[in-house]
């Protein structure tokens, strides 16, 4: 039983990281019907930006205030990069066929990935131990402070995002734009602002996810975005792409699925089973768990 609970705790931790990253995919898809393939690399970039802010701006301070400042500054920097990404890579292709935008997204992914390599080098960089190594043992199940922080902060951010989208005027604008951009424009909604906003939110959440990866796993490499991006993408599809609570649920489920497969079947097969799961979803329920079945407009 304690093995089960331990795997549960592990799964929820990585699941919440997947969920944070998946939100970026799903929000962009919801409004623009575009898979932002560069998102995974944005997440990787944020880990490096966070590391630079720690060494250059914060002077390697490890106090609580400094850690909070690192999170805020990294999220802010990545929000700016997100706006730039949308302006440079996607806005000029807004009216182009969808395939052009996808190719542009893949190109942006390569540019960001190689940009990280050129700026920070190809070597693995090591994240500092910003969160003290504190562990609690509950009858064989060990939970660390960093796990609690990741889980708690992820849940807070996700609830805040949900409330923002459901309860505020800007949130209503996002929802309207995701249903029909032209109609939203006729209602007086500035769709360009909405798109900029989702890139700001998506990139900031991705930045938090990237910092979590750095804090939890310590070693960060320029090409790690691909792996996390792929997992988050699967999580978004699992929950129903375009659906915000779906991305949260999908991320958590994928984290748990991965932990239990690796724990009970074989860690060798964890990735294979993850992709088999993706294929099964696409066959059985292409719109995902929470996605709505919408009839194709003719």
């Amino acid at each position: 039983m304690d093995i089960f609970l331990q795997q549960l705790a592990n799964g929820l931790t990585i699941g919440s990281m997947f969920a944070l990253v998946a939100l970026g995919y799903t929000m962009v898809y919801g409004v623009m019907k575009l898979i932002n393939f560069a998102h995974g690399d944005m997440v990787a970039a944020s880990a490096f930006v966070g590391l630079t802010i720690y060494t250059q701006v914060m002077g390697q301070a490890t106090s609580l205030v400094a850690v909070i400042a690192i999170f805020l500054l990294t999220a802010l920097s990545m929000a700016v990069v997100g706006i730039l990404l949308e302006r440079i890579a996607y806005r000029p292709l807004r009216e182009a066929p969808r395939l052009s935008a996808v190719v542009s997204a893949l190109g942006a992914s390569l540019v960001i990935q190689n940009g990280i390599m050129l700026i920070w080098g190809p070597r693995m960089r090591i994240f500092p131990e910003l969160v003290p190594q504190v562990y609690w043992d509950f009858g064989g199940v060990v939970i660390s402070l960093i796990q609690v922080i990741i889980l708690a902060l992820s849940l807070i951010l996700m609830v805040a995002l949900y409330l923002f989208v459901e309860k505020t005027r800007m949130g209503a604008a996002i929802r309207a734009s995701s249903i029909d951009q032209d109609a939203a424009r006729l209602m007086g909604i500035n769709v360009n602002n909405v798109i900029a906003l989702i890139f700001i939110i998506g990139s900031s959440l991705g930045a938090v996810g990237g910092l979590f990866i750095g804090l939890y796993y310590r070693g960060i490499t320029f090409n790690m975005g691909w792996q996390y991006g792929l997992y988050a993408f699967i999580a978004a599809i699992l929950g129903g792409i375009g659906n915000i609570p779906g991305a949260m649920l999908g991320g958590m489920l994928l984290g748990l699925f991965n932990a239990f497969i690796a724990g009970y079947v074989s860690s060798t097969w964890a990735d294979a089973f993850t992709f088999i799961l993706l294929i099964l979803i696409l066959i059985v329920r292409p719109t995902g768990i929470l996605g709505e079945r919408v009839a194709e407009k003719v």
């Binding site: 070693g219 991965n258 690796a262 860690s267 060798t268």
Partner: peptide, 20 residues
């Protein structure tokens, strides 16, 4: 006798089994 996937970063599932 366990195997991990290099670069996968998350080794807790394997280690949890080892712990038992």
């Amino acid at each position: 006798r366990d195997k991990i996937k290099a670069d996968s970063q998350n080794f807790t599932p394997v280690l949890t089994n080892i712990k038992s």
